[in-house]
């Protein structure tokens, strides 16, 4: 049994209470949601915190997937399993179900949350790539109220986000646009392992032409932001294998993977290319199926 260093524990009863506790705890306080990334790091003593603020009691308040106007809004405490099982989400953004199928294992999915995944900001984490692909925005609440930031602004770098000391992520908003679909592909050494590389794509089409497209990658570098060059290259073009290959090549160029036990730099670049093609191809296939 691996045991963490001593820490204080507090259980939040409301979002405001959690923010209050964060404020009291200062720098040494940290929110724990599903705990499937945080607790292993603490047990390995790679991370030590003075206080853990448990927000699992906030699932009623922050666990939801709902459509509001032209957005889907997901509460930060929505668990992987709920994302996986949400038909609403799967209909609007099939990329979510694709990704959730290959995230960790049922034990992790039963506890881990969307907010926890984004706030952990691990460059290998899948849902950051999914949210980037879908051009999500993040609602952050502090003592002085809420602010909304784009995924680009949310992600400051590996394990760093825009969430401030006495703030918490409460909601993720995904814009719904007509004529679109999406897909996610991941290569892992073994089920439940972190990705060697993964790629998500979202495509919107009208009159047989791509009106917009976005690609998000995971595990191929510190940066989890979108790749504007791909969006530019695809807009206004009819989908084709050549076009997907062009996008794949751009993905391979845009990423900056590092060699590790999961693979060589060349292989990961190759995967960025290959999986981007697959994700785009699948997205277009799904749009065509919707149309048919």
């Amino acid at each position: 049994m691996q045991v963490p260093a001593p820490f204080q524990y507090a259980r939040a009863t409301t979002v405001d209470h959690a923010i209050e506790l964060l404020n009291e705890g200062g720098e040494g306080a940290r929110i724990v949601a599903g705990g499937h990334s945080l607790l292993p790091m603490m047990k390995l003593r790679l991370a030590n915190f003075d206080t853990l603020i448990d927000i699992n009691g906030l699932h009623d308040e922050l666990g939801y997937v709902r459509e509001e106007g032209d957005e889907i809004r997901i509460g930060a405490m929505t668990r992987h399993r709920e994302l996986l099982e949400s038909d609403l989400l799967a209909a609007a953004f099939p990329i979510f179900r694709d990704a959730e199928h290959v995230i960790a294992d049922p034990v992790v999915r039963n506890r881990g949350t969307l907010g926890g995944s984004l706030c952990q900001a691990d460059p290998s984490e899948d849902l950051s790539a999914v949210c980037t692909t879908l051009d999500a925005s993040c609602v952050i609440r502090g003592r002085d109220g809420e602010r909304v930031v784009s995924m680009e602004d949310f992600h400051r770098g590996p394990y760093e986000t825009a969430v401030g000391e006495a703030e918490m992520l409460v909601e993720i908003r995904l814009p719904i646009r007509p004529g679109g679909s999406s897909a996610y592909f991941k290569v892992e050494r073994r089920a439940g392992d972190w990705a060697v590389a993964s790629s998500g794509a979202a495509v919107w089409m009208s009159n047989g032409v791509i009106s917009d497209a976005r690609v998000g990658l995971a595990a191929v570098g510190p940066n989890t932001t979108g790749i504007p060059a791909i969006s530019e290259a695809l807009r206004g073009r009819a989908p084709s294998e050549e076009l997907f290959a062009q996008a794949g090549a751009l993905a391979a160029q845009a990423c900056s993977p590092a060699v590790d036990m999961r693979g060589t730099v060349e292989y990961k670049r190759h995967l960025a290319d290959e999986l981007t093609r697959r994700a785009l191809r699948k997205s277009v296939e799904r749009i065509n199926e919707q149309g048919a």
């Binding site: 290569v187 050494r189 060697v196 999961r262 693979g263 060589t264 060349e266 292989y267 990961k268 190759h270």
Partner: peptide, 8 residues
């Protein structure tokens, strides 16, 4: 024979 080793 991880995917990377097979690809290489």
């Amino acid at each position: 024979l991880t995917p990377s080793r097979v690809w290489e």
